[in-house]
Amino acid sequence: MVDKQVAQAYWKMNLRLIAGCIVVWALVAYGIAMFFREALSSIRFGGVDVGFWFAQQGAIITFVCLVFFYAWRMNQIDKKFGMNED
């Protein structure tokens, strides 16, 4: 059985990590690519504004990085708290 205090600290770390990733996720998809697109429209390259590029390319690239970051960081936290399997 897992020690109660360790378990709580572990779960708290996980929740904090999830919250951080969700903030980045929302900022990219709903921020840069959506609600702030007009405000950022002066930043342009390759014939498009940065919001358009994020909506069609940048957001997806960020998502890939985020999922791997979460897996890597979480597996590290597992080990730190002795929660990993074998």
């Binding site: 990733c21 996720w25 069609q56 957001a59 999922v67 979460y70």
Partner: peptide, 20 residues
Amino acid sequence: YAGSAFLMGWTGGYILLAML
């Protein structure tokens, strides 16, 4: 641009799936 909803929607969901 409005078609980006499909692009972001169908990839962004994996973040939720992977973490939640």
